[in-house]
């Protein structure tokens, strides 16, 4: 399995990274090297090995359904470059216009 230049561009778009056209070939090589490493693992029999969800052999602790957090909007707003009417302002995004990565 190997990645194509188109795969490199797709992954860059999904990760919102600007990649210079001349960098694509170099990145393609590096990504293929990673896949080669994965390919190496195929030499081992992993049929009996359960996929790990986490590096600790522990399970999720649960919390009671209680409101413990107070309104932090005053301090959080100070961190935002721009705000108005208690809303964080971001560069204009049209709902569903040319956005290709929005999921829910």
């Amino acid at each position: 399995m190997s990645v194509s230049p188109e795969d490199v561009r797709t992954v860059a778009r999904l990760a919102q990274l600007a990649i210079a056209p001349e960098a694509v070939e170099d990145l393609q090589g590096k990504m293929n090297n990673i896949l080669c490493l994965v390919e190496e693992m195929n030499r081992f029999d992993t049929k009996e090995v359960l996929p790990m969800a986490h590096s600790f052999e522990l399970c999720q602790r649960l919390r009671e359904d209680e409101i413990t957090q107070e309104d932090v909007s005053l301090s959080a707003m100070k961190l935002a470059p721009c705000s108005e009417a208690n809303l964080y302002l971001v560069p204009w995004v049209m709902p569903a216009s040319d956005d290709k990565t929005r999921g829910e």
Partner: peptide
């Protein structure tokens, strides 16, 4: 998506 100074508001 109302116009806040030409920007979008996030709640």
């Amino acid at each position: 998506h109302e116009n806040f100074q030409g920007m979008s508001g996030i709640d």
